[in-house]
Design a protein around this nucleic acid. Structure first.
Lengths: 225, 225
DNA sequence: TAAAAAATATGATATTTATCATGTATTTTT
DNA sequence: AAAAATACATGATAAATATCATATTTTTTA
């Protein structure tokens, strides 16, 4: 397994604020884990005893609603850190994490990272900044959910997936998700999500091949009401 | 103006992690500010050069949606700290703050508090923990907005206001808000909010005197679908 | 590769919520 | 206290979205 010191992934997250000495220690105690598409990384209510650093692949963070439906709260790709919040509050995790495709991750035990958190103010500050950003994003999501139409939310989701995670060489969105996943990001019934994507296809805004989606007219999405 | 060292309000927020030496310094540079009901404390997009500590009164944190409507993201009472996020990220604030009744606050300049944030790890950790809690609350809000009916959200809002901010000696909710405010917490049209509250009144779940609301049957709210 | 399972598609309909209109009550101002 | 402004209330209707039913397509499994 590669060493943290020479791993570029850490540049994308808070671990970049660790000293090379600290990195060596983290590297020594981390364990590599792989997850297959659809596999559960952890579930709401579990006690996490460390954080996951995503080296490759994508996962969704979901929360179960009282109506029995999952709501996707966030998508996490390479560089993302999972389990920060429960590490800090020392509470059980409030979200579930499920792999959307095959994933490679590193697991860093709580004890090690907590030590760094207590002794390296720069690291703490970086984590704090990231958390503040997450909070801003969440606040934005609340407004979107409360004030925008399902169609508009779907448009924004497509743009988000496009901007954040990019496209393959054929122009299809890199992240491939089921319509059910889209529904649970947008916060709507699966049928409604399917219907809207079908409409967008008819309108020529997107095209699809199986589950794969290609954005044909980004501007239409942008101005969609 | 009273001194921070002898102010009990700080026990409710992250400032409790400051040393008495730090508290003295904060106390020396803070300024008292009062706001009248309806007054704007700060607006989305403003640059804040410090944080507000709420000594008395209540305010709402709102975000303007593209459709022109405000969405209430959070209510803040005695002990709350406003402006943490933009202090940490050094960005303009993403929310507006408006007083719901007359308020008394202390304003602590950025320079002072940033100093503490950098030098007192316990303080940083406390801020981090609070931010993690806020994030958890926000994630919960996203799910609520996405998956629950307007009626259910109204019920939860009433219970939240009851549990978090209490009732007066007659049993009315301490925080008095307009129906428009309720609508913008629940994320619905003002008429819909009014309609639902009227229904709840007819059903005997709540009673009202002017804008004041009294919860008559908490259990009905709890089990409301 | 055939069969089974899962995911997607779409019509019909019901339900929820928003919007518009208009009237009444309450609060604020003069 | 009267006038004006604001907030609340409610009916009628339109629009958005969910639900149920049932094909069809795609993917997975045997």
């Amino acid at each position: 397994m590669s060493k943290c010191e020479s791993c570029i992934v850490r540049e994308f997250n808070s671990l970049k604020a660790l000293t090379s000495e600290e990195l060596r220690r983290v590297s020594a105690c981390k364990t590599g884990k792989t997850f297959r598409k659809g596999q559960i990384i952890f579930e709401e209510g579990e006690t996490l005893n460390g954080v996951y650093c995503v080296k490759d692949g994508v996962c969704k963070l979901t929360k179960l609603s009282e109506n029995g439906k999952d709501q996707v709260v966030k998508l996490v790709v390479k560089g993302g850190l999972l389990g920060k919040r429960s590490l800090i509050t020392e509470q059980k995790t409030n979200l579930s994490a499920v792999a959307l495709n095959d994933m490679e991750m590193c697991f860093i035990p709580k004890s090690e990272i907590m030590n760094d958190l207590k002794k390296n103010p720069e690291f703490t500050m970086t984590v704090l900044k990231r958390m503040a950003e997450d909070l801003k994003d969440s606040d934005e999501s609340i407004v979107n959910m409360a004030q925008k139409s399902v169609r508009r939310r779907m448009a924004e989701t497509l743009m988000y997936v496009h901007d954040e995670f990019g496209t393959d060489d054929e122009g299809y969105l890199t992240i491939v998700m089921s319509r059910e996943d889209y529904a649970s990001i947008v916060g709507t019934a699966t049928e409604s999500a399917i219907r809207i994507l079908s409409q967008l296809k008819k309108e020529g805004v997107i095209s699809t091949t199986g589950k794969r989606i290609k954005i044909e007219d980004y501007n239409s999405l942008k101005w969609m009401e």
